[in-house]
Design a protein around this nucleic acid. Structure first.
Lengths: 133, 133
DNA sequence: CGTTACGTTTACGTGAACGTCAACTTTGCT
DNA sequence: AGCAAAGTTGACGTTCACGTAAACGTAACG
């Protein structure tokens, strides 16, 4: 029995989020934990979704944008209209992400340049100190 | 005379931000436009900084984080202590950005996979339609 | 049976990053 | 001189993504 579902505390620990966050995501219809009586039980699907949510956040997407994207990932067959809608959304997101990647690479390059300049300056200063001693 | 400085409106147009945003960034010490009487004049340095600010934002850094990073970029010689502090900060940011890049690449890969799956499903549905006709 | 732990709902609070509006100055026409 | 356009400083409002606290349910433990 490899604990098919997680309770809220286990979920928090597994993903390093607070219970409040999980409930908030449920309220926003990003997660759909099942209920055992009153309590929430997070399924494998919820875990997959949360992983994508947190990733989306790191890339600057809003929860609402993420919610829409998630539909593509857990789309079970038989929802033709939704599927093609999700597909278009995904294309847009993909474009965003590839643009972001390009810019990120540029930014990394520039930051490295600046750091090289800084390192040189620091070396010079260290040199002066030694010369003075 | 290639307009050495920009007034607030030109600055807004050039970077697609509002005047409120520029004043806000000044209040937060991210920009330092000079004053001609009462009015703000944005220099080349401000333009460079704003470009970095907007980029930083797209990568999910807070304005405060960005403010600290900017110091590395406009560091004039003669501020030894600050320089090495900025350098350390920059190293951290660089690490963040490279991690982000790696994750972004992974996410792009996965999204593409999902889209391929979606495309296949859509093709199947289109096939059924044709078969029915 | 009490209480301790864990979870729940409801509701108000918060910080970041601006938007919006009012009440001025200042500047440029005419 | 008159007046509109552009800019300024407060000051308050707003949205997002939660934090925090209160009041309650329930289940197990000693």
């Amino acid at each position: 029995m490899t604990t098919e579902t997680l309770n809220i505390r286990e979920m928090c620990d597994a993903f390093d989020v607070t219970a409040r966050t999980l409930r908030f995501y449920e309220a926003k219809e990003l997660l759909f934990p099942i209920r055992e009586g009153q309590k929430r039980l997070f399924t494998k699907r919820d875990r997959a979704r949360l992983k994508l949510i947190l990733r989306g956040k790191r890339f600057g997407f809003s929860l609402e944008e993420i919610r829409q994207l998630l539909d593509l990932y857990h789309m079970d067959d038989g929802q033709e209209a939704q599927l093609s809608k999700s597909y278009v959304l995904a294309e847009q997101h993909l474009a965003d992400m590839e643009a972001q990647k390009a810019e990120l690479e540029e930014a990394i390059g520039e930051l490295k340049e600046q750091m090289a300049w800084g390192a040189k300056k620091l070396a010079e200063l260290a040199g002066k100190k030694n010369a003075a001693a």
